[in-house]
Write a protein that binds this DNA or RNA. Structure first.
Lengths: 255, 255
DNA sequence: CGGGTAGTTGATGGTCATCAAGGGGGGTGG
DNA sequence: CCACCCCCCTTGATGACCATCAACTACCCG
């Protein structure tokens, strides 16, 4: 139950959010607009969106949403990766998701954030104040519809993750994780030999899958020895046997 | 890994949905309108909502949403309780939530349902066709806003459940479950001596908490022996020491 | 070259799953 | 009305999977 010693270093990092470089708020040139909720807005009206957004870049390890803090802002990730997590008072951590390009964070109804978020790669996002977003949403009802779609999809993903956490073995969890990463990184399903990038550490993967670092590492090794995957480095994996991994992730394989 | 023998009986039940008694679609007299998304609609316009809804009552054990089937309908529960779950091919089951009065089901973006739903108490709901709901939503944008609020709240709950499944002990899970039930059943927080009704079986609780029947049962006994709860019957619990349970659920207590 | 961090591998133990048997309550049929 | 049965639940004995503890390697950067 005390598998949190390795968080000590990170925990010491400043929890407070300071945002250094404010880049120009030019939605027109945003390279992730086509995949984000902003695509609901016509390009000739983009300036109204841009007026409400503050574009910011932060570095890995920087926490930009802290659980329990007032939910004053909404974030639309435009590049990089962040981990979303919740903590227990004794330090146990559960990562509930990884947010990347196009993801939206902070749709809290309550006054305070229910989770924390920290960059794991150099991260860029558009930030909206609560009021600013409200204005944008009332100006562009279509965007609200998009948000509902996004939220629905996230609920489906959350249910899938509950199935993983509640009922899958360590091996099945890792296989599911690698497949979902591959899907997110946008390659065609069922294709083998696909290269997947792992921006997160073993510790992050463990906290996402409800396991320990050691168990994650052991199962990486095992999948490798069985030929299902190959490890170019600690953060680059090749899915050699896609179908085998799918079978595994669905729980068909007994061992 | 084979903790699913006890599902055999339920699995044999018909998966197909047949809806017996169509009750009159009178939203005006609906006693759960004030707490559901429908409250977004003015009472003098309720007839337009009623026109799109089919009110139905089904009995315990009846499955009304089946994972993988075309997501043709949306359901608004008005009374009773249903369990929402996902299955692995070998029968392992994860219950992702219990839906009660006021809850909304079937907000699928994809063509097919991502989960199944089955009544565990006599259940009444309003059913909307996909098209019917679309009409209602375009007529009443305020209702769409409500749906977004509901979805956001469910996302928060889902994250909480992931924390439970990934990082809490069996004891902590059960304590958390009892407290969340008490909250749902609408009593004031922190009050001790509250009576909670458990409409679901031990098997359902186990599948919700990612445990087995036996572990759930053992931990009920243990909480009882420690005086934290009292069991009037298998489906009625009294929370004797609310604060103790909260401490436990948050992981403060080591044993 | 040295220190620190991340990852791997091994040995051991604990929590919970599995296997097994017994108890209790509600409903049906005799 | 009682007996029986069935299902659900409880309790006990054993075992497996994964966590924990510990040592070691690889790699990065100063």
């Amino acid at each position: 139950m005390n598998n949190f010693a390795h968080y000590a270093a990170q925990a010491r990092r400043p929890g407070l959010v300071v945002e250094p470089g404010h880049l120009p708020s030019i939605c027109d040139n945003c390279d992730s607009r086509d995949i984000s909720v902003c695509s609901a807005i016509d390009s000739h009206e983009l300036h109204r969106l841009a007026a409400a957004a503050v574009v910011t870049q932060i570095e890995p390890g920087r926490c930009f949403i802290a659980e329990g803090e007032p939910a004053d802002n909404f974030y639309n990730i435009t590049s990089g990766t962040a981990k979303i997590y919740k903590l227990l008072p004794d330090g146990r951590r559960q990562i509930t998701g990884f947010a990347t390009r196009g993801d939206f964070l902070g749709l809290a109804v309550s006054q305070n954030y229910a989770f924390s978020a920290e960059a794991i790669e150099s991260l860029r996002y558009c930030r909206f104040s609560r009021q600013g977003l409200r204005t944008v949403l009332s100006d562009f009802p279509e965007m609200e519809r998009r948000l509902l779609t996004v939220a629905s999809n996230e609920l489906v993903a959350a249910q899938e993750q509950m199935l993983l956490l509640g009922r899958k073995t360590a091996r099945e969890r890792l296989a599911s994780f690698l497949l979902s990463l591959a899907l997110k990184q946008g390659d065609c399903p069922h294709q083998s030999g696909v290269r997947v990038h792992l921006p997160m550490t073993r510790g992050d993967i463990a906290d996402y899958l409800g396991l320990t670092i050691e168990t994650v590492s052991r199962n990486f090794t095992r999948l490798k020895n069985e030929g299902l995957i190959a490890l170019q480095s600690t953060d680059a994996v090749t899915l050699n046997d896609r179908d085998g991994l799918v079978q595994l992730a669905e729980g068909y394989c007994s061992e």
